[in-house]
Amino acid sequence: MSNYNLSHLKELEAEAMFVIREVVAQFENPVLLFSGGKDSIVCFHLARKAFFPAKVPFPLMHVDTGHNFPETIAFRDRLMKETNTKLIVASVQDSIDQGRVVEEKGLLASRNKLQTTTLLDGIENNKFDCAMGGARRDEEKARAKERFFSHRDDFGQWDPKNQRPELWNIFNGKKNMGEHFRVFPISNWTEMDIWQYILQEKIDIPEIYFSHTRPCFVRDGIIMGKTDFVPTKETEEVRDMVVRFRTIGDATCTGAVASTASTLEEIIEEVASTRVTERGGRSDDKRSEAAMEDRKKEGYF
């Protein structure tokens, strides 16, 4: 009898490192999309592990909506400096200024959908042939069928009915000129795996994931952080609340949860007993039952 057994986190780590190494071997100019959120922080950590003691052999790209929580940006810049990593910022504001996209108007305006154009432009301008990202299959139903290596045509579109079969651990990154790939090294991780891994590896994350007091208001049952980018209705009362964020996206569509969890252990306990999915606080997914599928087909992450 052998005792050679890996924990689930070690096995997921080995799988993700394998995928990232395949990307570097199979593509000429890959990039890791980095939002400053916990999933992309974990991806970056895995990339460092995959090539240690060498530097991560690809740059990071942040598709910046301009609607960030300042803590996220401060964290991002500190991490890049500490690890001596190259970061490219693709800005939605630039896309708006160049007339590539038109900003949504009104109370529910969000730049989330506009990101797609900025992302695709960023990929094209930098001639990236593969964009890695921290999307997970457990996040949303349309993502449950996403491959590790996801082929995009020359318009950056995803064709869910025409995906390449992916067997064993063999990843086919062959493509024609102009096409690119999206690769998801942590496809098989769940929110819980991410938190456990952050705890196990002692990975630093932005402080807004932990409980803190900030001015908030409630819209459609979702707690929103008050920022300059989110206009409030007169009926929406802004007050200090004790909250934390489960995801860090565009501040206009990322909801907070009331929480006193101020350590990783407390967050894990909270995640274990929680009754709403992580994306439940994201108004962008609630637009229709197939909202995510539609955005993915257009080239959204």
Partner: peptide, 15 residues
Amino acid sequence: SKGKEANSYLDMDLL
């Protein structure tokens, strides 16, 4: 303790 509970997840394996 709370810490112990969180750590107990670290011993799981994967099927």
